[in-house]
């Protein structure tokens, strides 16, 4: 049986408050190992989140690179093989059956197409989309509020709640799932 998760979901009116709360939680975590996972919900992108939440391991660009190279190779094989696999091997216009200069055009497009598709696949993988909405999600987040979701062990809930409370939240919810 899956272990139950205990979550605290705190909503703040301001990014600065949320940042303070996260810092406090980090301090608490150093002291007591109380926090398992912190997630920040925000209506816009804050490039600073990596500084306060730690590094996100998302090597999307590697997917892009390999996708793009696969695209180059596949489109070359497609073009070259298609040119000579006709039942009448087709020389045209005094040119060789497998003409390289014009293959480059198709390879270029193939590179981009596969690159784009694999980037998108990597986006889906690393952002965890598509996913079901959690029940405690607060629609206000998509407007102008910031929320912090903290996964805690049941015995630490009160400590963490106190830490969140210190930074002036609009609301704190306790969720078990």
């Amino acid at each position: 049986m899956r272990k139950k998760k205990h979550l605290l979901f705190a909503t703040y009116a301001d990014f600065d408050n949320a940042r303070d709360a996260v810092t406090e939680l980090k301090v608490l975590d150093l002291k007591e190992m109380a926090v398992e996972h912190i997630e920040l919900y925000s209506p816009i992108e804050h490039p600073e989140v990596e500084e306060i939440l730690g590094h996100f391991h998302q090597p999307i660009q590697r997917f892009t690179l390999f996708g793009a190279l696969t695209g180059t190779l596949c489109s070359f094989l497609l073009v070259a093989a298609a040119a000579q696999s006709m039942f009448t091997v087709q020389p045209q216009g005094g040119k060789p059956v497998i003409p390289l200069p014009m293959d480059i055009v198709i390879m270029y497009e193939g590179t981009i197409l596969f690159g784009v598709l694999s980037t998108l696949a990597a986006f889906m993988i690393y952002s965890g989309l598509p996913r079901r909405m959690t029940k405690h999600y607060n629609p206000k987040v998509s407007e102008d509020h910031i929320a912090i979701e903290v996964e805690v062990k049941p015995e630490h809930i009160e400590h963490v709640r106190q830490a969140l409370q210190n930074c002036g939240p609009l609301e704190i919810r306790e969720v078990t799932e």
């Binding site: 997630e39 925000s42 209506p43 660009q61 690159g115 998108l120 690393y126």
Partner: peptide
């Protein structure tokens, strides 16, 4: 919207993807 909730994980992946797509 694929269940987008504005999580930091999503935003970081989003920004990276968006810039990569723009580069293409």
């Amino acid at each position: 919207s694929l269940g987008w909730m504005g999580r930091a994980t999503e935003w970081v992946a989003f920004r990276k993807t968006y810039v990569l797509l723009a580069c293409f």
